[in-house]
Design a protein around this nucleic acid. Structure first.
Lengths: 340, 340
DNA sequence: ATAAATTGTTTAAACGTTTAAGCAATTAAA
DNA sequence: TTTAATTGCTTAAACGTTTAAACAATTTAT
């Protein structure tokens, strides 16, 4: 790479000190009492020499890099990709750039990623925390590193966070199924102790209970995040047959839903007549299923924007953690409306 | 943020010079003839004080930040999100971190983004160049900034690039339609002068010609990237009716395909019997359409990995531009196989 | 015993910035 | 006129690193 023009170059070019150039190009000319004519000459020279500030040097000096670190489970998951896009835009509006990384829901990877981003001196982090990362997050807090959690959070930790009411959304999704004539409602979720997951399970159970339906352990499939498709298939076949077979399923997220839909389709099960379906989070795919999926829609734009805003707030002197709950909506489509 | 431990802190803690600490922690102890015992004490102190190097300072000193800039059209588009993930992993394997930005296919935004990333001293850029950015790319080359183009490239520019044979893939996709009994094959693409688009159009026309089908200008829909759904709808209705109505469509990318599928579905047109379909690039949605879509599958893993490898190559002294063509595959599904 | 080589460490400059403090020269106030 | 204030600029230190060069103390060679 060709050497770029530095303040020094401009200074040398004009035979003045570097400080003078710095003042002028940072609009501190007034304040530093730089001569009107000199200021003009410096600006012109900067233009002529095509000066571009070295943000790395600026960052070193100021201790602020105007960079936000983003850690999600997997950037290729549409949910996170969409959030990333919103965060990028909101960050950019405020003069920030985004560095990202995928944790793969793995605590160790998450840790390594976090440290890398911190060593790169990001000003703060927006994190969708993986399982078993509570200590990591606590640690970041103790180090006074500005963070905002998204999608998931730890109820016992006083961090800034943006999330939806997972309990409520899950409960109303399942209630919706029950109100449409389904009674044996199963749930497919990831084997995961994160709060958002347990809240969704709790909402599922609460809906059953409220409607007087006894929850059965067999109805709840807990799949492994890194598990194979055929494991899921086995579980699904189980739950869809036998005496206590379910007549509806609630998926706790979009990737699980997509995986299950493929299997259900293969098995030739008729949706919604034989089986009602509701999912958490949308997917391009849902609308194309022959019975378009009913799903809980999170307002990704608001979530992303709020996350950036909360992070920016933490950059200011008074920075009490703040939690924001974004409303979620149930998008009702054919998959949950029984016709006979 | 709490101040982090610096080399200086360790040095002060042990009453030695900063240089010594630097040598030891960079494994240059031998070379700098640091005493065995001293080295141990320094390493221990580094551990005790939880030293983490300031990568910004390192970057300033060395002129290399171990950061790759990634510019795509839109990170929320699954195609680019997937590429981003692969690039992230490949970069990480090589000790690099990724900063990204979305150009929205807009030359001006692309320009601003590029400069921002460069000012942040990325070591190089992986770019899916937007329309009208040829001068920008040329400019980067003249400044000797390492770049690798992906997805699209400029045939008249001698840059490193990773791409597929768009002409060939398009031609075989359309040929496949013709061989399956469709004759009036239309194409939906973005109004765009980028090489990959014109190559896809050329492939489409070549397939028609080879099979003795006269190309009709009305068969080719050129939609605006920022255009609305109803504009597309109007065009589609046009092309699907009348004397010269098409009996098959070739979509030049996944987002167009998804948008068109919705419309086609609404119009109640029967695929593949009334209308054959083939798309470029996959989508989760395709498999769920009642007639799963036939599509040209790009090997995203190979593309991403190759892009990073090419970029790394450019960091080495001898850095001739290199172009890599990755094979594409036609995934045949029901949407293009006529049943009557 | 002296010179030369080796060992263990420090000094200092540099990367590109920012910014408080200093210093002439000029202008204004006394 | 002398003093004080203002103007226009420079010096120098700092951010956290790296690394060549210098230096003293010790060891080895002659």
């Amino acid at each position: 790479m060709n050497k770029k023009t530095s303040l020094k170059d401009i200074a040398a070019h004009l035979g003045v000190s570097v400080a003078l150039v710095s003042y002028v190009l940072n609009n501190k000319a007034e304040q530093a009492r730089v001569g009107k004519e000199m200021a003009e000459r410096i600006k012109q020279a900067a233009k002529d020499l095509n000066y571009q500030p070295n943000l790395i040097a600026k960052g070193l000096k100021s201790g602020r890099t105007k960079t936000i670190g983003l850690i999600v489970a997997d950037i290729s998951n549409p949910f996170f990709a969409n959030i990333a896009r919103v965060i990028e835009d909101e960050a950019s509006k405020n003069g920030y750039t985004v560095i990202f990384g995928s944790s793969d829901e793995d605590a160790q990877k998450s840790m390594a990623l976090t440290e890398t981003l911190i060593n790169r001196q990001v000003d703060g982090l927006i994190i969708a925390p993986a399982e078993h990362t509570q200590e990591q997050i606590e640690n970041l807090q103790n180090r006074n590193i500005p963070i905002v959690l998204i999608d998931r959070y730890f109820p016992t930790l006083d961090t800034s966070a943006v999330y939806i009411n997972n309990f409520g959304a899950a409960k109303s999704a399942v209630t919706h199924l029950i109100e449409n004539g389904y009674s044996n409602v199963g749930m497919v979720t990831y084997q995961n102790q994160l709060f958002h997951v347990s809240e969704r399970v709790r909402g599922y159970k609460a809906a059953l209970e409220q409607r007087g339906i006894g929850f059965k352990e067999e109805w709840l499939i807990r799949a492994n995040y890194h598990g194979a498709q055929n494991e899921l298939e086995k579980h699904l076949k189980n739950i869809l047959t036998g005496d206590d077979a379910v007549d509806a399923l609630f998926f706790s997220n979009n990737s699980l839903a997509v995986a299950c839909l493929k299997i259900i389709h293969q098995l030739g099960i008729n949706v919604p007549d034989e089986l009602g379906l509701v999912s958490f989070d949308g997917s391009e795919a849902f609308d194309f299923f022959y019975a378009p999926l009913t799903y809980v829609k999170q307002d990704i734009s608001r979530i992303g924007a709020a996350a950036v805003q909360l992070l920016l707030k933490q950059f200011t002197p008074a920075h009490e953690p703040e939690k924001i709950e974004i409303p979620a909506t149930l998008i009702v489509q054919k998959s949950s409306i029984r016709r006979r």
